[in-house]
């Protein structure tokens, strides 16, 4: 799915017109806790969230997120928009809620890009 199709599917509005809309959206992830996002999201996903602070954009940047959809018509503060502009990550606001949006995207063929906790075993060793 490309950004244009995403905006149409969520009936959303692009908040930052300077964003890079060329990135393919390969899957989706919905969460309001940023550590949950970082723990589970795979690269090149759309992130659906109710959170509006700049850390949403930072999280998206670290996790190679292709686009952010803010649910329930939320409008972020200017700091968030500025950061999204700098990083050129599309910031989209949609009037619908999280469940509705996940459903719409899933129905349009977008896969879940949330890895299950069962996959997330810690392969880390003690520091040497």
């Amino acid at each position: 799915m490309n950004a244009e199709e995403l905006i149409k599917t969520v009936e959303g509005t692009l908040i930052n017109p300077d964003a890079d809309l060329s990135k393919e959206i390969k899957g989706g992830c919905g969460a309001d806790l940023m550590s949950d996002v970082l723990a589970s999201i795979q690269p090149e996903a759309v992130l659906l969230t109710g959170l509006c602070n700049p850390q949403v954009v930072r999280t998206a940047q670290m996790a190679d997120v292709s686009a952010i959809v803010l649910v329930r018509g939320k409008l972020p503060p200017q700091e968030t928009i500025d950061l999204a502009n700098n990083e050129r990550i599309p910031l989209i606001t949609s009037p619908y809620g999280m469940f509705e949006l996940c459903g719409r995207l899933y129905q349009n063929g977008l896969k879940s890009f949330e890895s299950s906790v069962a996959d997330g075993d810690c392969s880390c060793e003690q520091f040497s």
């Binding site: 309001d32 806790l33 940023m34 970082l38 949403v56 392969s123």
Partner: peptide, 18 residues
């Protein structure tokens, strides 16, 4: 603010080798 899920250190462990 969207933090405090209690996943931070677990995430770090998942991402680094040690």
């Amino acid at each position: 603010l969207g933090f405090g899920a209690g996943m931070g250190l677990a995430n770090i462990a998942r991402c680094v080798d040690s």
